[in-house]
C-alpha cells in the first residue's frame, strides 16, 4: 500500500517520478532511487547554511514520488547551483539536477516562476542575452558605453525570429 502525504492527502505521483528518472537516464545521471540518505549533499550545501535547503530531503521526496508537493514549494528555488552535492554524492545522484527538472516542470505547466527569471527568458528570446547592453560605471562616477572602451558590438543571433521560435520550443518541452 502506498504512503499517503498527510498534509496534502495526496498519493505519490508515479508517472511524474518516472518522468524524472527517465530524463535523468537520458542525460546520464543516476536515478533518484539510488540515494541512500547519507546526507553528504546537505552537509556541504551552500544554500543549507543560508536558506535551509536540504538536498537529501528533496531526493527522498522525489524517490517517494511526491513531485507535486515539491513543485509547489518555494524551497526548490533556493538552490544556488554550486554543484557540490552532485560532486560529492557517493551514489552519483545529482540533487541539483533533480531540482532543475522539478523547476522545469513548473515552467512547462505554466506555473509562476519567481524573481527575474521570466524577464531573463524574455530578454533571451528578444535579444539573445539575459539582459540588454548597459552603460558601466567608472571609479570617478562617470558612465561609459561599450563603444567608448574600444570594444566591438556585442554578438547577437543573426536571424532573431528563427532563434526565438526554436528557443521558445525548447523551453516549453520536457526532454522525455
Amino acid at each position: 500500500m502506498p504512503v499517503v502525504d498527510l498534509t496534502s492527502m495526496n498519493l505519490p505521483q508515479q508517472d511524474r517520478r518516472s518522468t524524472i528518472n527517465n530524463t535523468l537516464e537520458l542525460i546520464r545521471v543516476a536515478k533518484v532511487d539510488l540515494c541512500f540518505q547519507c546526507t553528504k549533499c546537505t552537509s556541504g550545501c551552500e544554500a543549507m547554511k543560508l536558506l535551509e535547503l536540504e538536498p537529501h530531503k528533496i531526493v527522498a521526496l522525489a524517490k517517494a514520488g511526491y513531485i507535486d508537493e515539491l513543485m509547489g514549494n518555494d524551497v526548490i528555488w533556493t538552490c544556488m547551483v554550486c554543484f557540490k552535492c552532485k560532486e560529492r554524492c557517493p551514489q552519483k545522484v545529482s540533487p541539483v539536477e533533480v531540482l532543475f527538472l522539478i523547476k522545469n516542470m513548473n515552467l512547462v505547466e505554466g506555473k509562476e516562476v519567481p524573481g527575474e527569471y521570466s524577464n531573463w527568458l524574455q530578454t533571451i528570446m528578444g535579444m539573445g542575452m539575459i539582459m540588454s547592453e548597459q552603460p558601466a560605471l567608472t571609479k570617478d562616477g562617470s558612465t561609459v558605453e561599450r563603444s567608448d572602451l574600444g570594444l566591438p558590438p556585442a554578438p547577437a543571433p543573426e536571424d532573431m525570429e528563427k532563434f526565438m521560435n526554436v528557443v521558445m520550443m525548447a523551453a516549453m518541452e520536457l526532454m522525455v
Binding site: 523547476k103 522545469n104 527568458l121
Partner: peptide, 9 residues
C-alpha cells in the same frame, strides 16, 4: 543562468 527554467533550452 536559465537551467532553472529549462535544461532542454
Amino acid at each position: 543562468p536559465v537551467r532553472h527554467l529549462s535544461m532542454n533550452m
